[in-house]
Design a protein around this nucleic acid. Structure first.
Lengths: 162, 162
DNA sequence: CCGAATCTATACTCTTAAGTCAAGATTGAT
DNA sequence: ATCAATCTTGACTTAAGAGTATAGATTCGG
């Protein structure tokens, strides 16, 4: 259970584009240089984001990438799901049934519900964070201390076992 | 960002052992059979858990695995960290610095703090859940519907990407 | 002592994710 | 029309995680 490279780098690329004003195209070589990634890899990541509808691209001499929507409409949770998948995916049970026909529920339904609980905790953060929030966090004060992305207060997150 | 196979299977094995009373040894072939895993893989997972101090083992004809501590002292977060690493590890920045000397903070400190926020949300759940909790959840009512580990209201599930 | 049942350890293979390569297609400027 | 800058695509290579194989060491019962 780790953040993947695609999530890290893909999100960085998205930020590079969001940082420029709306309508300003950014090219693959520019992003590649800014982030220290190969152009080929940058292109691959941008393609993923474009196919998922977060970016749009223009070809040709004055081409480049721009956001497909305003940053406040780009949910980071959706971006990360595209780049690195969901924590607990639909086919998880089938894929982890061992040699048995199906995951033996008597032995691990408590695990299933633990996974859901974690998933929910993560979603609570990521579904409420937009690209706008990340950009705003940078504007404020980057170097200093303290968490820059603050989660709006909500019901206390407590896993409660019946 | 996904749960790993080691986390899933390793935790299942740990549950198998915790389910038996204290002091009752469980053998690799038994667990292997119960979970539908190969004995070799089961052995590998159990070894990881043993080396991390969650289990102890006895060799020989009447050998097997038992918990090294009472289940209420086994924090699931620690177990998962051992089986699948932490979401956001210490060396993450160095490992993802691209070609650059270090991760350029001006471009991604907002990402760093996002990662921390997610990590905290996950830890909040996992550091408070013990093996005892999972075992208790099973005792109650497993087959029926509904999540056994329940989160207090106000957890809107994330919307799918179109 | 001997053998069966058990755990132990390391090295190996297989699969998937990460990252690269190379050929192609579009656009705008001259 | 040509050229250079750009994105596009699919196949390829490499690295890492998942799972296997095999040989070895410990314990206990006879």
């Amino acid at each position: 259970m780790k953040f993947t490279s695609h999530e890290e780098y893909g999100l960085r690329c998205l930020l590079q584009i969001g940082r420029r004003g709306p309508g300003v195209g950014v090219t693959i070589p520019e992003i590649s240089r800014a982030e220290g990634l190969s152009t080929a890899y940058t292109a691959k990541l941008l393609r993923m984001l474009r196919n998922a509808g977060f970016l749009k691209s223009a070809r040709g001499q004055a081409g480049g990438y721009t956001l497909a929507r305003p940053p406040e409409e780009i949910i980071i949770g959706d971006v990360l799901a595209e780049l690195g998948g969901r924590l607990f995916e639909g086919d998880f049970c089938e894929r982890h049934a061992g040699q048995e026909a199906s995951c033996t529920h008597s032995s691990d339904c408590s695990i299933r519900s633990l996974w859901s609980t974690v998933q929910t905790a993560v979603d609570r953060v990521l579904s409420r964070t937009t690209l706008r929030d990340l950009l705003r966090a940078e504007e404020s004060a980057c170097p200093p201390e303290a968490s820059l992305v603050r989660i709006r207060p909500s019901a206390p997150e407590r896993a409660e076992v019946l």
